[in-house]
């Protein structure tokens, strides 16, 4: 554990809580892609199956359970509790175009051809692209509420901090995890365009982020 890793986990947690609180307080999930949130729930589910097989640390177990619970709570709020506010007509990204290549890749490129390793690899690859339905929705509608953009900022920050964590671990422990690093870098690149808009538009005091 290093400061980049801890800060990354904290910003991931902050992102998820921001989104959950926004939906809960406004009693609306307008502008939120339910598809992205289902994909994130699937990411956590397939990655944290090792909760049943190995014990790593109290921190590790608690964070995994919290991420799982919060992601399922978010999906519940979007599709059940506040489903009337869900903009399904704008959440039209074809998820199968992500799932099929990701499933195929996880069978081809993994550390061991075992169910748990393949599912872990699937979760790493899927996480890299899971935000695409949300970014697609923003592009389609041409705008995003500022709270939604804060959520995306912390989610992108988490990925960027994990890269710093990997650089740190490579230098201090000679440790590297190539599948996680390549996917993490790809995932962070998806956020670059958003980061630019976030800093130039949202933080300069407009309520909403509108696209040019």
């Amino acid at each position: 554990m290093n400061v980049f890793r801890l800060a990354g986990d904290v910003s991931h947690l902050v992102a998820i809580i921001i989104l959950l609180l926004k939906i809960w307080r406004s009693k609306s999930c307008a502008g939120i892609s339910g598809k992205s949130q289902v994909l994130f729930a699937l990411v956590f589910t397939t990655r944290y199956l090792d909760l049943f097989t190995v014990f790593i640390s109290v921190y590790n177990t608690v964070m995994k359970v919290v991420f799982l619970a919060l992601s399922y709570a978010t999906v519940y709020l979007i599709y059940m509790r506040f489903r009337n506010s869900y903009n399904s007509e704008n959440d039209t990204f074809r998820v199968e175009f992500l799932l099929v290549p990701v499933i195929g890749l996880s069978f081809l490129e993994n550390y061991a051809f075992t169910p748990l390793e393949i599912l872990w690899t699937f979760s790493i690859f899927l996480e890299a692209v899971a935000i695409m339905p949300q970014l697609f929705m923003i592009t389609k509608t041409g705008e995003a509420e500022s709270i939604t953009t804060h959520y995306l900022f912390f989610l992108g920050l988490y990925r960027a901090l994990y890269i710093a964590n990997w650089v740190w671990r490579y230098h201090t422990e000679s440790f590297y995890d190539l599948i996680a690093i390549v996917s993490g870098v790809v995932q962070t690149i998806f956020f670059c365009d958003f980061f630019y808009l976030y800093f130039t538009r949202v933080l300069r005091g407009r309520g909403k982020m509108t696209l040019p």
Binding site: H12, K64, W120, D177
Partner: peptide
């Protein structure tokens, strides 16, 4: 090195 088990990162 490559591959890690157990996987400590989240």
């Amino acid at each position: 090195g490559l591959s890690i088990n157990p996987k400590d990162e989240l």
